[in-house]
């Protein structure tokens, strides 16, 4: 019987895949100044899935777009795989984003005119990998996720859950190790949302680093760490390290 909690790396080793240092983001100035982020420090290591929760307006999405190089911080640093993206210039950031960062959006953002396999292959092709090789990688990724039967389907021929799983495959194709997901389960029913989370979880278990913004506690619970944001600051987080199942489920008996 399941009386044992599988241990995940409680203290991740090595350099973080993503590191945010004293990140701030201010919109407007003077009296109209809005502080979207007020000094965020966050490290995410390989094998780790971090959920970011907080009320609307707390800065969750801003954090994610800056981490992915889609928006620029007012001050502070974004370091991806050891590289401070501030020093890279626009072209450099675009290249880093293509090579290292995968984005997953609430509305999947697959290209409608391309099949599942073509969608997954696209970022690799853009990065100069041969079409043949990119397609081969895409099919391998789909096979790994048991989605090979939809390889040749177009997005409008897939369910929402299938589209989102393809989007996750695309986010992590090639050598990319960082996936940033903004409400990835938003439009999905509870069962399908769970499948998407299970997939994200297993990709992180196999070495990816993930940051997911969500307002759903049940999905956040798939993460190793839950970070709580309020008014642009990290106010709290659940600690890594795991209770053993005996004390978890039978507190009385464990005493």
């Amino acid at each position: 019987m399941s009386s044992h909690v599988p241990s995940r790396s409680a203290t991740p080793a090595g350099a973080p895949v993503l590191e945010l240092r004293a990140l701030t983001r201010t919109h407007g100035s003077g009296i109209a100044e809005v502080h979207a982020l007020r000094g965020i420090d966050l490290s995410v290591h390989a094998g780790e899935l971090v959920a970011v929760m907080g009320p609307s307006g707390s800065g969750k999405s801003t954090l994610l777009t800056i981490a992915g190089g889609l928006d620029t911080a007012t001050s502070g640093q974004v370091v991806i795989e050891g590289q401070d993206i501030a020093g890279l210039g626009r072209k450099g950031v675009a290249a880093l984003r293509r090579r290292s960062v995968g984005y997953v959006f609430q509305d999947y953002n697959l290209i409608p005119a391309l099949t599942a396999a073509e969608n997954i292959a696209l970022p690799r092709e853009l990065d100069g990998v041969s079409v043949r090789k990119a397609r081969k990688e895409a099919r391998a990724a789909l096979e790994e996720m048991k989605l090979l039967e939809i390889a040749d389907r177009f997005p409008d021929e897939m369910s929402g859950g299938q589209q989102q799983r393809v989007a996750i495959a695309r986010a992590l194709v090639g050598d990319r190790r960082l996936v940033l997901a903004d409400e990835p389960t938003g439009a999905l029913d509870s069962e399908t949302g769970e499948q998407v989370l299970a997939l994200l979880r297993s990709r992180c278990d196999r070495g990816a680093a993930g940051v997911m913004v969500t307002h759903e506690p049940r999905y956040a619970a798939w993460a190793d760490r839950v970070v709580f944001l309020r008014d642009g600051s990290v106010v709290d987080q659940t600690l890594t390290g795991h209770a053993d199942a005996e004390s978890l489920l039978a507190p009385e008996a464990a005493k």
Partner: peptide, 19 residues
């Protein structure tokens, strides 16, 4: 909230294992 989420993380881990 932190405590409740932590419990959910632990339950979810058991669930993922069971699945």
């Amino acid at each position: 909230r932190r405590h409740t989420l932590k419990a959910m993380q632990d339950y979810t881990r058991l669930k993922a294992q069971s699945l």
